[in-house]
Design a protein around this nucleic acid. Sequence first.
DNA 1: AGGTATTCACATGAAACTATTCTCTGAGTTAGG
DNA 2: TAACTCAGAGAATAGTTTCATGTGAATACCTGT
Length: 421
Amino acid sequence: MINLEIEQIFDSFDKNTIFKDKSLLQSNHKPEEILHRRQQIKQIASILAPILRGEKTSNLFLYGKTGSGKTLSVQYVQEQLLKRAKENNKYKLRIEYLNCKLKKISDTEYRILAELIKKMGGSVPDTGLPTQAVYSKFIEIIDSEKQLIVLILDEIDQTVKKISSDFLYNLTRMNSELSKSQICIVGISNDLTFLDQVDPRVKSSLSEEEIVFPPYNALQLKDILNNRAKLAFKEGIIEEGVVEKCAAFAAREHGDARRALDLLRIAGELTERDNSKKIKLKYIDEANEKIEKDKILDIISLEPKQFQLVLYSIIKLSEQKNKEGKRQLQLTKGTAFSSKEPIFTGDVYNFYQELCLKNKIDALTQRRVSDIIQEFDMLGIINVRVISKGRGGRMREIKLAIPRLIVEKAKEIIQGVLNYV
DNA sequence: AGGTATTCACATGAAACTATTCTCTGAGTTAGG
DNA sequence: TAACTCAGAGAATAGTTTCATGTGAATACCTGT
């Protein structure tokens, strides 16, 4: 009997009334046509063009918020350049794209170099070698034949923040150590102020050009969405106003095209699951919530145990405080106004210590917990403000920044982890 | 009253430490000739 | 004697701890009116 039901599920899935080609909405999809970025692409191309004559070009830096088409544009130019270079074939040209933020690579000079070497066809152990040795190896590989190399370093601001700007400096200096080859760097950064933080000496040695990618506005987003939706969905499936709403949502989030596409895709998935025939407006709202929720819960469940304990303390404490606050208000005024009562570092640490004791886990120092709290702030899970209570001391004022529903889920996750261990 | 000086309870920084991962090297061991 | 094993030295990283210094403003303490 159950077979029948399963068959039915498969059947309805098989009919696939919604999508024609879902991959078009996946964030790693490269469209053939890049809308509203013609200006930027032209600039990139004209700056990098000398490469085709075998000349070194200035280093190039691209700025713009996430989902503003930076990566897409460079990769487009990269393809065109390679195609052209193949045709006239005078100089050997290599263009390597590396996303510095990919988890494995992200935060050390060593690993970035190792990854680059791997891309160039060499190999380097994950660890155990002095960094200097990796540098020499890199130079050796590059310099083994006459060639021009363009390194595209995506999300480079993250890396430079973690390591130091020495990394950039070393890269630029590398050219002088190369006899046959030349390197040119294309950095991509989400942070517009990124280069201001870099040591001025390094900055001057970069001798860079900059291109800024402004965020898409709602209209442009709409174009992009329409363009893809046409091919990704079956005809007539999208209700009036859906695309506009997606665009509006994403435009609010600094014009993030990736976000807009995600919204549309997830709304489609929700529609499919609901066995509905059309993508309605309400699915967009649901999709928006789902994205937000998944993101947060994902982060929380991936945090290490100590982090989760700290967060759990914060959650518990803010629940307590809220209850007290409510009761007091009810006593005095009789209103059940639920304001978010802030809690303070000391409270969290005490609670956390007890929690550790109960669970037989070694407690971290206050210093460390302080950092952990700050990290949660960076993740946007809590809001933190340093306040001074005069003689009462100076501390962080902590507020939970996630909706109640997600808090409940988060609690479950953490409790699960605690009981299991 | 008005102005300094204190003081609280952490924040913030820097350095040092620990555990773990991994390579590389050379000493010791082994098996086969 | 060549091949193999295995311990130890070094490097690098993540996650801490230790030690030191900084800090905003409510309060305590003066000062002179």
